[in-house]
Every structure is written in structure tokens, then in C-alpha cells.
Design a protein around this nucleic acid. Structure first.
Lengths: 343, 343
DNA sequence: GTGAAAGCGCTAACAC
DNA sequence: GTGTTAGCGCTTTCAC
């Protein structure tokens, strides 16, 4: 008695799934009322609410978010872009972000920008096309065109893991320069003089070791041994980097590695060559990866609270999406040097 | 001269962004033609194609996938569910999956099911609500209700990292039982007799070590020392598990760990106590994590090609989404024991 | 508190 | 090859 005759005229499209209309009909209310019962239960009478809920159960209805997103221009989808998932660095952030968003009914879309700029732009377009309620960037958008498109899209953006001077929009991170300086001072204070750096060839670790170098120079140390390894960093490159360092005639008594994995490589290679850590060589990592505390010797490293970054990013996005203007758009989560046995 | 007067009557809704209509108007074609120019360029005349492309550039148009999804009932969104991102086990799979899907214009949605069943069901609903073109499960859906809803939704499902006897739909994995047997035989063939297992307390590693135990029993070994550690496994729990093993009076000359991280913990603790590996203790890991080859001693482990699992899962989903029926719904990617120094 | 009407931006189906 | 029409399933707006 409903749309059966209409169906004869036109072939059925759509998914064939239960719709809100079906629920509404069963509950004997208007579709709009059913919608309200699900979204703002407080604005609906208890009896109607009960009937609708029953109908939902009876039909096995699951809302179609795509339709809702189209009508309301709120997708409750948040995109996260990482350079790559390979390094473990961003994992805690992504994990916390996913969880925090889920708590508010938001879902995470993941994109890997890789190291090719053209892919990054394509990814950005794919993301914007989905009209997410927010975009979380771990890593930077390189192309000016990409940055421009992001701004034009009017989607809230959170940049993370950095404290760039000109944020696109919102920002949660820490100062890589401050890390570099702090580690240099830490090592200097312990009497180390022949400093070295093993750094991934990415922008941020470059900035850390530049600051490290500058701080060392201020203390009268001219020479800094630097080995650059390709990102993402691995245990293997840590091993071979130490080998390279040891070949240098000047010698080395402290290494600052741009990741804990690299540091583990250094530890491994040092042991293989009978080099005493920290006696002959102090080793400092970066990230305070879960395994750092339990290494032999326990790894001195720079602790970054990746989870906090993810949670703050989620807060930023959700606040914006719910229409709350965020007062402070930049959050510095800081860092700390965890002083363990290796240095 | 177009809809300006209409706008006066009703307040403007929508996002205010450039729509396909705007592009079509500028290119002087019907919206449908503009749509075709973007989706099936081959079915449009070269001149029209050029005009549309120009209009896209001029306006900075980015398609609204949500609208497209609603109209076409194809979201080009694929959901992936992992128990947690914490362990590094599924990373290569997720990474390969994300990349392979992106190559075909699909985007990944990530969900963490955690270890709570109610959260899993909520997650499933959130996912189904987005009407993804496919769902990739790493780990199992536990609740019968959840499995039921998944099937009812009619969304292609790929279960991974396992070879369950009753797949929901499609499957790509390997046999955990076969792994357990193979490792037991490997160790037995090398003359090890006092076998031990350090296993995460998840379903699969339980099945690996059950098979391991059975194979050992077949060879006349009655006793098997087992230490169970909470998932996700860590280096620390590897260290303390070895400690516990060493306390047993029977002694141990070989350990099969349910992850490489656990094995690294065992290696670390063994060294701290002056225990020779592989002389006094053979150590076998699981996963062939990137660092395994470069440990000291290099870790003998079970290699699983996580990337291949991800790529095959992507192939399954994309094939289905494009309407190609997949002939073989189950793919066994197998495994291999990488024979290195630690055993 | 509830309902009717009018789209959100796109594409399937059918003509021409 | 191109255009017209009619929705996809939901929510906004406005009236009651």
C-alpha cells in the first residue's frame, strides 16, 4: 500500500537497507520526529522516544551517516595525515586521537602522505573531498598549493609535533630547537666534549641537531660529528652510523640519536665492539619509546607525550566542530629528558 | 540572473563551497556532463572535457564525496579494525592496506576495537553507519551480535591474520597451528629438549603455542614451560618472563616468544644474566619485525608478510566494490622460519 | 513537542 | 555524446 506500485515504474535504487523512514513508519511518527529521537532525545516525549527506540531495534536500523553529513554539512569524520606509519613515532598520537574522537562519535580517516609531494596533494584532495570536520597533520604540508587548498576548504586544521611560527590554524607540539639545546646542555654538564649526532634526514630532526650544534658551539665546541640516515630510522642505520662515527679520527664520547630505535642500534653495535656505554660513550635517544626503560643499559632519552598530543588535537577539532571557539590555538606540550643509565 | 532571488526567500544552507553545478555552469554544460567528465572522461568529447577541466581549475572545485556516496551507494571508504595500534604487529598490514586502497581512490577509516566487547559493538555500528565499501578485520569480531550485524549490513568483509574455519566472508591469513608445529620441529631438530613458550594472552598466540605443545608431545616431550604475558606484548614482559622461566627447576634450553619484542626482552635479560644465546638458550621470535635481523645475536623468527596481507585485503575489497566476483575467497599467505643466529 | 516541505550535492536511469 | 528527471536518506527551516 506504500511504494510497491512506484517500484514497478522505476527500478529500485538505493541500498535497500532500512531507512529512518521505515523506522518512523513503524513507530507511527514523522521521519523528522524519529530523527530527533535519535539525535536530541531530550526534545521528544518519552512515549515517542520509546516507540522509536523499539522500532530501531525491531528493524535493525543503522543510521546512514553519509546522508546525514550531506544534509547537515557535518561529517563527524576527522582526517589524520602521517608521513608514514612505518616509524613508531606517531603511533601513540594516532592511537590516542582515534580513541578520543571515538568517544565523541567521530571516526578517523587515515592518510599516508609518503615523501612525494605530488602524492601529498592528491591525498589532500581526496581528504577534502570527504568534507571531514577536521584535519590533523603530523608532519608538515610542504607544497604552497596544498597549504592554500587546505585554507580554502575552511576545514579546521591541527598541526602537531611541532611549534611552527606560522600555524595554518591550530597547533599542538613542542619546540625541536629547545630539545636540541637541552640535550646539548645535558651532555655538556656531564663532561662530554666530543659530541655527535645521528639524525634522520627529516626537517624536524635537522632542526633539533642544528640547535644542538649551536648550543655546543656556545660552549666552545667547534666540531660536531654528524651522520645523517634516511627516514624512517631503523636499528640497522643506528648500527652502521655508529660504525661510521667510530672511524672518525677525533673520536666520540656522546651521541644524540634522533629516535630510540636508532639509539638501540647504537647500543647494539657498541656492545658488539666491546664499547662501554655509558663509560666510553653516552647515548641519548628521542621519543621515550615503550622499550627504552628496559634496555640494557636503560636508555636516556627525550620523552614526548604523543598521547597528549593526540588528545589535545581531538579536543581542538571537536570543540570547533561543536561550534565552540577555541581561545588558545597553540599548545606546547613540552618534553623532558629521562635520565637513565645510558648517559 | 539564476538563483539570487530564490536566495532571498530562504536563507542559504549548505557549505557555501563550489559545487559541480557551478563548474557545469562555467563550462556551459549540464551538471551530469560535468560529472561524467570527472568520473568517466572517456565518455565525453575532448572539447567538453577540456572546458570542464578548466572550469574545475578556475573554481578550485573539490568533489563532495558524501553526496556522491549517497547517490551512488558507493562510499569509496574502507574501514579497518585493529584490536589496538599499540603492538607493531598490524602496522605493515595497515600501511600496505592504506597505500593500496589510495591507489584505487579509496580511503581508509581506522577503528580500534580495544579489548572490550561492548566497545567493539559500538565501533561496528559507527562503521556500518558510514556505509563503507568494505571492512577489513585484523583480529576477530567476538560477539555473535556483532557478527550478525556485519552480515546483515551486506558489506564485504575481509578477516585477516588468521585462517578461521568459518570465515564471515573473505579471508587472508595463515595457520597459527602450522606455525606452532613448525617452530617445535625446528627446535627439536636442533636438539633442544627443554622447550618453553612465552605467549601473549590473545587467542592466536594461544593457538600457536597449543600446536607447539602438541608437536612437542608427539616427540615425547611431556613438559612444556609456559609463561603467559598480557597483550600487547612488550620488551619488559619478555625480560620478566625469562626470569620466571629461569626459576623453574627443570631448566630451559629454548624459548618460543609470541612476538619479536618479547624475544628482544629475552635476549636483553639473557645478556644481563650472562646467559649465552644460542649456546645455553635458543630464542625464536614471531613477526620478523624490521629490527630482528640486526639484533645481537640476530633473531631467528617466524616471518609473516604483513604487507602482503594488506595488499591482498585491498584487492579483495576493490574487486568486490567494482563488481568483480572474487573466485577464491580464502588466501593463505603462509609463513617461513628465518633461521638466524639466536637459535 | 511534532510535522510538512524543501533541499544538501551528486549520480542512475532514461531519453534524445 | 549530452541533457532531463528523479531521487539517494537525511536534516534544516518554519509552521503549528
Amino acid at each position: 500500500m506504500d511504494d510497491a506500485p512506484a517500484r514497478a515504474r522505476r527500478p529500485r535504487r538505493g541500498s535497500g537497507a532500512v531507512t529512518l523512514h521505515d523506522v518512523a513508519r513503524l513507530a507511527q511518527v514523522a521521519p523528522m520526529t524519529a530523527s530527533r529521537a535519535l539525535n536530541t532525545p531530550a526534545r521528544v516525549s518519552p512515549e515517542v522516544l520509546a516507540r522509536v527506540r523499539e522500532a530501531v531495534k525491531a528493524t535493525g536500523y543503522v543510521r546512514n551517516h553519509a546522508a546525514g553529513a550531506l544534509a547537515s554539512t557535518r561529517s563527524r569524520l576527522v582526517a589524520a595525515v602521517v608521513p608514514t606509519l612505518a616509524g613508531p613515532v606517531f603511533l601513540p598520537t594516532i592511537q590516542a586521537l582515534t580513541a578520543a574522537l571515538a568517544d565523541h562519535g567521530y571516526q578517523l580517516m587515515l592518510g599516508q602522505s609518503g615523501y612525494i609531494d605530488s602524492r601529498e596533494d592528491a591525498l589532500l584532495d581526496a581528504i577534502i573531498g570527504r568534507r571531514p570536520d577536521g584535519i590533523v597533520l603530523t608532519g608538515t604540508v610542504h607544497s604552497p598549493d596544498g597549504r592554500q587548498r587546505l585554507q580554502a576548504a575552511g576545514i579546521p586544521v591541527v598541526e602537531t609535533w611541532d611549534l611552527s611560527p606560522e600555524p595554518l590554524d591550530m597547533l599542538v607540539g613542542f619546540s625541536h630547537e629547545a630539545v636540541g639545546r637541552a640535550v646539548a646542555q645535558f651532555l655538556l654538564a656531564r663532561g662530554r666534549r666530543r659530541l655527535a649526532v645521528i639524525a634522520g634526514d627529516d626537517e624536524r630532526s635537522r632542526r633539533r641537531h642544528e640547535a644542538f650544534r649551536a648550543a655546543a658551539a656556545e660552549h666552545g665546541l667547534a666540531e660536531l660529528a654528524v651522520v645523517t640516515v634516511p627516514a624512517p630510522t631503523t636499528l640497522r642505520s643506528g648500527r652502521s652510523a655508529l660504525l661510521e662515527l667510530l672511524r672518525r679520527p677525533a673520536g666520540v664520547d656522546a651521541v644524540f640519536c634522533s629516535s630510540d630505535l636508532l639509539a638501540l642500534g647504537v647500543l647494539t653495535e657498541a656492545r658488539a665492539r666491546g664499547l662501554d656505554v655509558p663509560g666510553q660513550l653516552a647515548v641519548v635517544g628521542f621519543g621515550d619509546h615503550e622499550f627504552a626503560a628496559d634496555l640494557e643499559p636503560a636508555l636516556t632519552t627525550v620523552r614526548i607525550d604523543g598521547g597528549a598530543i593526540g588528545r589535545q588535537a581531538a579536543r581542538f577539532i571537536v570543540d570547533r566542530a561543536e561550534g565552540r571557539e577555541v581561545a588558545e590555538r597553540v599548545v606546547d606540550v613540552g618534553f623532558s629528558i629521562v635520565d637513565r643509565a645510558s648517559a
